[in-house]
Structure formats: C-alpha cells, structure tokens
Amino acid sequence: MVKKTKIMVDHSKCHTGASTDPRDCRKCLFVCDPAVFLMHPTLEDHPDPHNPEIWRIDPIWLSKCTGCMKCVEVCPEQAITVVPGVTLHEMKAR
C-alpha cells in the first residue's frame, strides 16, 4: 500500500463568514507551487448558481503535494494540516 499524502483543511476555521473569508484570503492557493488546492462554491448551499456566495477551499491534487509545508505556515487561521506521503512522481518512477 502506498502512503498517501493527507491534507486536512479545517472548515470550521476557513469558511465564508469566518474572520478570513477564503475568497479574500487565498494565500494557500498562491504559495502552493503544484497548485494542489481548489477554491469552489459549495455543492450544498448553492442558492444562486449564477453568482454563488459561499466558497470553500479543498485540497484536490494530493498526489502532487511535495510536502513543502508553505501552506501550513501561510494560513492565517492555522486551518491546514499536511501529512506528506508518496508523490505521483515517485509512483511513476517505480
């Protein structure tokens, strides 16, 4: 079994309405070289799909995370935890 990278974003700290709104902050998106994170309107609260109000940040491309921890350092709410694992690059080399 490969040891997968785990990235947790604590949505009780990072959410629309919190002291730092993900749409205004976006620091993790900016510092991540492989662009692992994705900012998206939530699927549940979607009152106006033409102009969604509620956005979230989730890690998507986990296998591309190189474990640099810059997102953990930059997050003003300390909402991100990273446990590095095997990357896609390493898996291809095998």
Binding site: H40, P41, D58, W61, L62, S63
Partner: peptide, 19 residues
C-alpha cells in the same frame, strides 16, 4: 464550472485522482 473536480461521478471525484 468550479465544482467540476469535487463533484462525484459514479462515486468518484477528482480528490486524490493520482492515487
């Protein structure tokens, strides 16, 4: 458009697609 990668398609979304 922005929900493309988190949306489940036949039980799978793109989260951790590499694995």
């Amino acid at each position: 458009m922005e929900t493309l990668f988190i949306r489940k398609i036949m039980g799978f979304n793109s989260i951790g697609l590499g694995y």
